[in-house]
Design a binder for these strands. Structure first.
Lengths: 303, 303
DNA sequence: TTGTATGCGTTATCAT
DNA sequence: ATGATAACGCATACAA
C-alpha cells in the first residue's frame, strides 16, 4: 500500500510499523512484470579496461543512477557473436534501453524496434541515434599542429580502418590535411580489431623499422602511452626527434613523460547525452539522431 | 513449452516454427518471479576508473558470464550512504549475490543473510567470506627490497589508515620491516578516502617539502604513476636519487618512465575466486571464509 | 476509506 | 501426450 488515494492515519501507521518490523522491501521483479519497466539499461562495450570505455562506464553509471536507472554491464570484447548474445540476453531481461559502444555491423539484425538503443561511434541506421566526437575536426587539428611544428615525415597509427567506425574518420581527415600541406603521411594499421596492449609495441617497432625518419605521429592516447614508453627505453627524444599527438585525453595522458599532447573528447558530456537520449526515447519523446561533440586540443609536452 | 516430459514430434515442430515466426524470447522477468532466481550479481565498487577496480570489473564480468550470471554495476564512490542505497536496491532487485569492493564498515547492518555476499579487502564478519592479497607479505617484500638497495630514509604514502581495510596491512608490515632494519620510515596518509588523482600530487609535494632526503618510497601504483610524472618534471632522478616501489601491478605500471617496480596482486585469480565462492554460496555449498592470495615482486626500472 | 479480484509471463502440477 | 490451472509479488480497477 504505497500512497494510494485515501488512507486513514491509523492504518497508515499500522502499515508503516509492519514495514519496519518485517524490513519489507518491494520486489522489483514483480513490479517490473506488472509495469513492464525494469529501470535497467544494458551497456555493451568492447572492453572494460580500456581507459576510454572505463571513463565512459563511470560517467554512464553516474548519469543513469541520477535518472533512476541501473546498469547491466556487458563486455563484447569486439566479438560479433558476443554482441549478438548480449543483445538477445538484454532483450530477454527486458531492459528499458541499450547503449552499445562501437561494434560490428552485423548486430543490426539483432536490434529490435521495441527496445530503444543508442550507439557510440557508429552510424547503424537512420533511426538509431549515435554519439561521437568531431573526429573529422580532431584529425585536422592534429595534422595542422604537426605541420606547424615543422614535421615533414608524418605517420599515423590507426586501428582497423576496414571497420566502418566513425572514429576512423579522424585518420581520413588527418591524412587529407597532411597531404594538403604537401607532407608525406605514412599509414600503419592493425589487422586486429581488439585492444591488445601487447600488440601496440609491435606496431611501433614496425614503424621505426620501416621508416625511422618519422618526425611526427598521430595515434590514440593508449597507443601513445605505449609509444612513449618505447621511446624512453630506446632513447628517442620526445619532442625533439619525434612529436607525438594523441586522441581521447584519457586520464593517463597527463602522467606520461613528457605529458601527452592530445585531442580531447568530452567523455562526460557524451555520456550525459547518451543517457538523456535514451531516457527520452524510453519516454516516447523525439530525439536527435546525430550527436557530434566538439573536440579540444590539449597542448602538453610531446609536441 | 521448453522440453517438458513428453512431446510429439509434430507439435514440437509446430512450436519451433511459431518461436521463429514470432521471434519469441522467454521473458526473464516472469521467469525470475517464478523461480526466485534472477541470475544477476550485484557489484559495488568504490570507483570504476581506478585501474585496479577496472581490471577487477573486467575479470568479474568475464567470469560471471561463464557461470551464466549478469553483472549489475554500482559505483559507491566510497560514500557510505551510496553503499547502503545500492545494497537496498540490489536487495529489491533480488540479485542472486553481491560482490562488494572495500567499503565503509557501516554497511554491515544492511547486509541480509538471505543474499550471499563476498567482499574484497575487508573482513566484515565471521560468516562473510573475503578475498584479499597477502598484503602483509607484500609490505615486507617492498621494505626488504628498498633496504637491500641501500635506502636509509624511507617513506610510505598510504590511503586512510583509519579505515579498517585489509589493504592497510601492507603498510603496517612495511613499516615494521623497515624498523627491523633500523631505518627511518616517514608515513604520509591522506585524509580523504576517495581516489582523487588530483590530490596525489599535493601529497607528493608535501613529502618533498617535509623531507627531501627521502631515498626510497612505497605507495600504490596509481600514486606511483603520479609521483613519477612529478619527478620527471622536477628533474628528480629515478632510481638514482629516489627508489620507488608500487603495489598492484596495474597495466600502466609497465608504461611509466622508468617502468615501475611493484608488488603484483593477481586480480584475475582473485576475481575468479570471488565468482566461484559466490556461485557456491548461491548453490548452498560450503565456502572458505578467508581467501588470501599470494603476491609477487615485479622488478622493473624504478629500483 | 477499505477489501477483493484480476493480470503481468512463466513454470509446475494436476487432470484429462 | 496434452490442456487447464495455480502461484510467484505487485498494482490496478472495481466493489463494498
Amino acid at each position: 500500500m504505497n500512497n494510494r488515494g485515501y488512507i486513514s492515519a491509523e492504518t497508515r501507521l499500522k502499515v508503516e510499523k509492519a514495514i519496519k518490523k518485517l524490513k519489507y522491501q518491494p520486489n522489483e521483479i514483480a513490479r517490473s512484470l506488472f509495469s513492464k519497466k525494469t529501470n535497467i539499461l544494458g551497456l555493451i562495450v568492447p572492453s572494460i579496461i580500456h581507459p576510454f570505455f572505463c571513463e565512459m562506464i563511470q560517467h554512464l553509471e553516474h548519469e543513469a543512477t541520477k535518472h533512476r536507472y541501473k546498469i547491466l554491464l556487458c563486455n563484447s570484447n569486439f566479438e560479433s557473436n558476443k554482441e549478438q548474445e548480449y543483445l538477445e540476453m538484454l532483450r530477454r531481461h527486458k531492459v528499458d534501453g541499450i547503449i552499445i559502444g562501437s561494434h560490428t555491423p552485423e548486430v543490426l539484425q539483432y536490434i529490435t524496434k521495441d527496445c530503444p538503443l543508442v550507439t557510440f561511434d557508429r552510424r547503424l541506421g537512420k533511426n538509431i541515434p549515435y554519439i561521437t566526437s568531431d573526429n573529422s575536426h580532431g584529425g585536422q587539428l592534429a595534422a595542422e599542429l604537426l605541420i606547424q611544428k615543422g614535421c615533414k615525415n608524418i605517420a599515423c597509427l590507426a586501428g582497423n580502418l576496414e571497420l566502418d567506425l566513425l572514429s576512423n574518420e579522424r585518420f581520413e581527415s588527418f591524412i587529407n590535411t597532411v597531404h594538403k600541406h604537401n607532407a608525406h603521411c605514412h599509414i600503419i594499421q592493425t589487422d586486429a580489431n581488439v585492444f591488445n596492449f601487447e600488440k601496440y609495441v609491435t606496431m611501433i617497432e614496425e614503424l621505426f623499422h620501416t621508416d625511422d625518419d618519422v618526425d611526427g605521429i598521430f595515434l590514440s592516447d593508449m597507443m601513445a602511452i605505449d609509444l612513449l614508453s618505447y621511446c624512453f627505453q630506446n632513447k628517442i627524444q620526445i619532442p625533439k626527434k619525434l612529436k607525438v599527438i594523441g586522441y581521447d585525453d584519457i586520464i593517463y595522458a597527463k602522467f606520461t613523460t613528457p605529458p601527452l599532447t592530445t585531442i580531447k573528447q568530452s567523455i562526460e558530456e557524451m555520456s550525459i547525452k547518451a543517457i538523456e537520449i535514451l531516457d527520452n526515447m524510453i519516454n516516447g519523446k523525439k530525439v536527435q539522431m546525430q550527436n557530434v561533440f566538439p573536440v579540444e586540443m590539449i597542448l602538453r609536452g610531446t609536441t
